[in-house]
């Protein structure tokens, strides 16, 4: 654990809490993409399945449970409790265009199988390489789901950014949410540089997806600094 990872996690937590509080206090989820929030709930669910199989630290377990809980609470508020305020007409990004390619990519490019090995898996050539069945401890399935979550997280904010570009504005509090979410990614990039130099740790899948994700926020960061700091709303 280094300071960049810790502040990155806390920034991520801040973003999630800001969004929950905004919806709760204003009794409204206007301007919030429910689709992005469903994707984030899916990201946390598929990534933190290892809660069931491996223990890393109390901090790690606690944060995972909080992230999952908050993600589902947000989805509940948007689609159930404050459904009447949900702006579905402007939340028109086709989420399946993200989930399906990302799902395919996570089978093809992951830490457990090369595409050729994956071909052998689906052809069931090697029993040892079977994803499921007797003798399997689910680790390959978890690994593919982890990869899926990493890829999906990198693009999960797109419905939200699409919604903002469609309506042409965002409330200040929504921009704070996006700022902390982007800050978390930027801090994680520094964390990976740190870990590479001091621990020799290097996770190419996480790093490439993290770079993509951070790039998606760059345009928003620019607007945030130049507009939101000086005015009430984010005009585009």
């Amino acid at each position: 654990m280094n300071i960049f990872r810790l502040t990155g996690d806390l920034s991520h937590l801040a973003a999630i809490i800001i969004l929950l509080l905004k919806i709760w206090k204003t009794r409204s989820c206007a301007g919030i993409s429910g689709k992005s929030q469903i994707l984030f709930a899916l990201v946390f669910t598929t990534r933190y399945l290892d809660l069931l199989t491996s223990y890393i630290s109390l901090y790690n377990t606690f944060m995972k449970v909080v992230y999952i809980g908050c993600a589902y609470a947000t989805v509940y508020l948007i689609y159930m409790k404050f459904k009447a305020t949900y702006d579905g007409n402007h939340d028109t990004f086709r989420a399946e265009f993200l989930v399906v390619p990302v799902g395919g990519l996570s089978f093809l490019v992951n830490h457990d199988f090369t595409p050729l090995e994956f071909l052998l898996v689906i052809m069931y050539v090697s029993y040892d390489m079977a994803l499921c069945g007797p003798g399997s401890n689910c680790s390959h399935c978890f690994q593919i789901l982890w990869t899926f979550s990493i890829y999906l997280e990198s693009v999960a904010i797109l419905p939200q950014l699409f919604m903002i570009s469609k309506t042409g504005e965002a409330e200040t509090i929504t921009t704070h949410y996006l700022f902390f979410l982007g800050l978390y990614r930027a801090l994680y990039l520094i964390n990976w540089i740190w870990r590479f130099y001091f621990e020799g740790f290097f996770d190419l899948i996480a790093i490439v997806a993290g770079v993509v994700q951070t790039i998606l926020y760059c345009d928003f960061f620019y607007l945030y600094v130049t507009k939101v700091v000086y005015s009430e709303r984010l005009p585009l």
């Binding site: 457990d112 680790s139 978890f142 690994q143 994680y188 020799g200």
Partner: peptide, 10 residues
């Protein structure tokens, strides 16, 4: 260390 099945980050 090339990360494989044990992921310690959030």
């Amino acid at each position: 260390i090339i990360a494989r099945t044990r992921h310690d980050e959030l």
